[in-house]
């Protein structure tokens, strides 16, 4: 690997990492409230397709194209779409106390199915070429700072990304701070650890779960949008986001439920995922085999955490359980 390739490799890794980081930051907030949301892949897909829907309507309107407006519209649609999808999960698991695993899986089926369905309709309306593409919007999302390319290697490695990459890191840092250092974070953690205690302490458990899961869902959804708009340059493709959704869920474990570790973890995952073509001399099939690595690494981390059995590194204690105050 020569220098140029190395830089491209780093750029690619970081680009992909943003999707994973947003996805897993969202899932972390959700899990901190005691909800294991296996619907994350579905939410990411739904968020992404909502953005695409926004893009379709914006570009097919007669208004003059404005990059900023296109970003605002797609982002707004994405937030709305992922929020609505997450609300299905919230209503079922929190209000109706259904099983979280089953609900989450059903939500993934739903979200991925919906995104494929809507995607194919938009594709058809746009002429049925197989891809729904919005190159102008992709360009808007990938706009870098004007002086980024004048700063040599530093600029290439640190400043060559669209705004969402930085947004992802900022969100992760903020979430890490809120969880560890604020009253809200303390309350949130107590809801995930021991909802009965939180309830007795005067915390509205259901409200915390709703808000955390919805905020988490929106952040994950933005992760999906990032992938489509920035990484894939506003090209919609069916069935692409669920694997990144599951990788995001995996990243939560890898980062032992800490968003700041997830920043590094997402870059490692991103690197493992894109490294194939950069390893010269590797055949295509071996590159394919390399894609196993993020999953295997996660499994290893999972097993090690459980073997060491340290109290600080465990999942929230009531993760996956519904809470009912009058349970006897």
């Amino acid at each position: 690997m020569n220098g140029t390739m190395l830089i491209t490799f780093i750029q690619q890794s970081i680009r992909l990492s943003s999707t994973l980081l947003l996805g897993s930051t969202g899932e972390m907030i959700t899990e901190k409230s005691g909800n294991l949301n296996l619907g994350t892949p579905g939410i990411m897909a739904a968020g992404a397709i909502s953005g695409i829907v926004g893009a379709y309507f914006y570009t097919s309107s007669s208004a003059a194209f404005s990059p900023l407006l296109s970003i605002l519209i797609t982002l707004g649609c994405c937030i709305l779409g992922s929020l609505l999808t997450t609300l299905i999960y919230c209503f079922l698991t929190i209000t109706l106390k259904t099983n979280q695993n089953v609900t989450g899986l059903a939500l993934t089926t739903f979200g991925v199915g919906l995104s494929n369905f809507v995607g194919s309709i938009i594709n058809q309306r746009m002429g049925g070429t197989g891809v729904a593409a919005f190159p102008e919007i992709g360009k808007a999302y990938r706009t870098t700072l004007p002086f980024a390319d004048k700063l040599g290697i530093f600029g290439d490695i640190f400043l060559s990304y669209g705004f969402m990459t930085y947004l992802a890191i900022v969100i992760a840092v903020i979430v890490a701070f809120v969880i560890a250092k604020t009253r809200v974070g303390l309350n949130l953690r107590s809801v995930g650890e021991n909802p009965a205690t939180a309830d007795a302490a005067g915390i509205n458990v259901d409200r915390y779960k709703y808000v955390a899961t919805c905020v988490g869902g929106i952040i994950s959804g933005i992760g999906g949008l990032y992938y489509v708009m920035d990484f894939a340059a506003a090209n919609w493709q069916n069935n692409i986001l669920d694997q990144f959704g599951w990788l995001s869920v995996a990243l939560v474990i890898f980062a032992v439920w800490r968003p700041n570790i997830a920043i590094l973890g997402s870059i490692i995952f991103g690197a493992l995922y894109v490294v194939g073509p950069f390893l010269l001399g590797l055949s295509t099939k071996d590159q394919e085999l390399l894609k196993i690595l993020p999953y295997v690494v996660t499994i290893v981390v999972l097993v090690i955490i459980s073997m060491r059995d340290k109290k600080e590194n465990q999942p929230p204690e009531s993760l996956g359980l519904s809470y009912f105050r009058e349970e006897r």
């Binding site: 303390l186 953690r189 107590s190 650890e193 021991n194 009965a196 205690t197 939180a198 007795a200 302490a201 109290k311 600080e312 465990q314 204690e317």
Partner: peptide, 8 residues
Amino acid sequence: HFKLVDVF
């Protein structure tokens, strides 16, 4: 039965 969070 104490209502306390163990890891806090």
